[in-house]
């Protein structure tokens, strides 16, 4: 513990606040025992295959296709959610209308609803016999049991992340900036697009990244809504499950590690941008 304390010693030694070692020590202890050590077990597992084995496990066309699908659709879902999340947050923070509290509470629904239930509900809706599936079918659009089903499920489960990261920042954003812009003769649209949006970018970006990270790993709701056909609508987490059924723990862990590493690098880059932006402010 003391070694950790030394390594992470505060930069400003004249600090008066107490509890640095205690809080950081507990943080690191809890993080290490519950997250890092388990993830280490995951990362070490594939290497019983050897490096060649790992490469072979993740470079088959089928695995690559599933990774492409998972990451591609997650990116699309994150962008869709960012756009609509921003609009929803804007409406929630800036407008007063009856039912606003209900709308606000509804946003967190995807957190509360178990993913399997979400999957069952969505597939009932979007199946050709369902409420929405029937309407879409008339226009020749098929959603359920196609790769678009993956997208729909991801948009559903990730929405709260984008709304909830933008919402508080927007609420804190003082009106003085807007007033200043308006006084200087900017139209409302100009004020929003040139002044306010740039101030929201970090929050939007964070929300987008968290939505992406959540969507990439999603399993429970997607398998009900996607066709799960290898190479077409088979997501990477499903492939992990299939490898497990074959008692191929190392292969399963290898795909898990690829997904984890990609998400981690993304989040790290994002947090770096955030803290850089914060320092510049």
């Amino acid at each position: 513990m003391s070694a950790v304390g030394l390594k992470f010693a505060p930069l400003k030694s004249q600090h008066v606040l107490p509890g640095f070692r205690l809080s950081l020590g507990f943080t690191i202890f809890y993080l290490t025992s519950l997250v890092l050590i388990p993830l280490l077990a995951l990362m070490l597992r594939p290497f019983e295959l050897g490096l060649d084995g790992v490469w072979e496990a993740i470079s088959t066309p089928r695995v690559l296709a599933s990774l492409r699908l998972s990451f591609g659709m997650a990116l699309a879902a994150a962008i869709i959610d960012s756009v609509f999340g921003l609009i929803i947050a804007w409406v929630l923070v800036r407008y007063r209308f009856p039912g606003r509290a209900i709308l606000d509470a509804l946003i967190d629904l995807p957190f509360a609803l178990p993913t399997a239930v979400a999957g069952i509900a969505l597939s009932t809706l979007y199946a050709p016999s369902g409420w929405l599936g029937g309407i879409l079918a008339e226009y020749g659009i098929k959603v359920a049991y196609t790769p678009w089903g993956v997208l729909i499920a991801m948009v559903f489960i990730s929405l709260p992340f984008t709304v909830r990261t933008v919402q508080p920042v927007l609420a804190e954003l003082g009106k003085d900036v807007e007033e200043a812009a308006a006084t200087l003769g900017a139209t409302r649209v100009q004020t929003i697009s040139r002044v306010m949006l740039p101030m929201l970018y970090p929050a939007i970006l964070t929300g987008c990244a968290m939505a992406f990270a959540r969507a990439v790993g999603e399993y429970g709701s997607i398998i009900f809504l996607a066709g799960n056909l290898p190479g077409i609508s088979e997501i990477a987490p499903l492939l992990i499950v299939i490898k497990l059924e074959e008692f191929n723990y190392a292969g399963a862990a290898a795909i898990g590690v690829v997904m984890l590493a990609t998400s981690f690098v993304m989040l790290l880059a994002l947090n770096a941008i955030q803290s850089w932006a914060a320092r510049r402010r």
Binding site: I223, F224, N228, L229, P230, E234, L238
Partner: peptide, 10 residues
């Protein structure tokens, strides 16, 4: 086969 479900019941 349009959908490969994971289990018989599904």
């Amino acid at each position: 086969v349009p959908v490969l479900d994971s289990g018989a019941r599904a």
